[in-house]
Simulated assay, not measured.
Amino acid sequence: MNWKPFSAFLQNVFIPLITVTIAAMVAILNFSVSNLDRELKEQVAAVDIAIKEARDERERINAEREFNFKIYDLVQLSLEEKNERKQEVAKQFVLVMVDGELRSRLLGVLEAGGTPMIKQETAKIIAKEKEFQIEEDSNLRTDRSVKPTFDWEDWDYDIFWCTTSGASAKEQAEFIKQQLEMEGAKGRVRVRVRELFSSVNARSGYKISGYAIRRSENEIVQANALETLAENVLLEKGYPAVFKQQLTSQKTRWYISAFVCP
């Protein structure tokens, strides 16, 4: 047997081919390992972020719980001492700093056990907030299942004015309502001017100051139209105003609210 051609084949073809194949396999393996390493690092980073967020949320909840206990102690101490000044301070803390069920309960405690003046003031606040909440709930229950055309009359409007801004704010809100009605706005249910009580505006989710329009994500065109109308009519009446639009998470289709709180 002639080994020379076979030897030449091994040296010139087979061995180089094996070498290239091995090199390619090593490259592929390195690439796969690199991708796996990157994916593992990304997963570890995601877990670290999740742990940090959970820790931050836990710390926030603990801090909020501790703060609420302090407010509760403040209310209880003011009632035990029958100190009207401390009860007033406690009431203001509850109005500004506490939300949800605890807020309602603490106001109820002050109404039940406070001095005559505190009882009277707290009862008024509770009554006003209940009235306001009933009207807000009616917005959520209103049937707006049929999409309207782009006309003023097909939308519902609430023009709020802040109690703290006084009669001037109420007058401006009335000007906006009147102009809407002059241009044909009737509302699918209503067009209203409403008072935004101080205790309500102190709650998270409100805290309105200045001029604002609240809308859903798909109500940009309508909000722009209301913004232009409101700014023009107030300017004509001697109230130069600039309205800022804010997104709301409330699911109230074809309903927009404006706020006059200068």
Rank of each mutant, 00 (worst) to 15 (best):
F69R: 13
E84T: 10
E64T: 01
E88S: 14
R85V: 15
E88F: 11
G108D: 03
K70G: 07
K86Q: 09
E59T: 04
G108A: 08
E101Y: 09
K91I: 06
D99S: 10
D73N: 14
F93T: 06
N68W: 11
Q76D: 03
V94G: 05
V98F: 05
L77A: 04
G108V: 02
E88W: 08
L79P: 12
K86E: 08
Y72L: 14
I71W: 00
N62C: 02
V75A: 07
N83Y: 11
L107N: 04
Q87R: 02
E88D: 12
D73E: 10
I71Y: 03
L77H: 07
V98I: 12
F93L: 07
L74P: 01
V75W: 08
Q92E: 15
N68R: 14
K82N: 12
V94I: 12
L79T: 04
R58F: 11
R65T: 12
D73P: 00
V94F: 09
V94W: 05
V89D: 13
D99W: 02
A90E: 06
K91E: 05
D73W: 07
E66S: 10
M97E: 15
L79V: 09
I71G: 03
E66I: 03
R105D: 13
D99P: 06
N62V: 06
D99N: 13
M97P: 00
R65S: 10
E59V: 05
R105F: 12
D73V: 04
K70S: 14
K70L: 14
E66D: 14
L74A: 08
V96E: 14
R105Q: 15
E66A: 09
S78G: 07
I71Q: 01
E80F: 07
G100C: 07
K91F: 09
K91L: 15
V94Q: 02
R103Q: 09
R58G: 09
K86Y: 12
E66R: 03
I71E: 01
V75R: 06
I71C: 01
E64V: 01
R65D: 13
L95T: 01
S104F: 02
E80N: 06
R60D: 08
E81D: 05
K82Y: 09
L95S: 07
V98A: 03
R60L: 11
E57I: 08
V75H: 09
G100K: 06
R58S: 13
E59S: 11
L102A: 12
A63Y: 12
I71A: 02
E80C: 00
V98W: 01
F67E: 05
V98E: 02
E88C: 01
S78Q: 04
S104P: 05
F69N: 08
L107V: 04
V75G: 09
E88G: 15
L107I: 02
E80H: 02
V89R: 09
E81V: 09
Q76S: 13
R85M: 15
Q76R: 10
M97N: 15
R105M: 15
V89N: 09
N68S: 10
D99T: 09
L74M: 13
E81N: 10
E101R: 13
M97Q: 12
V75F: 10
N68I: 06
N83V: 11
A63H: 11
E80T: 07
E101V: 10
R85T: 15
Q76F: 06
I61Q: 13
Y72G: 00
S78H: 02
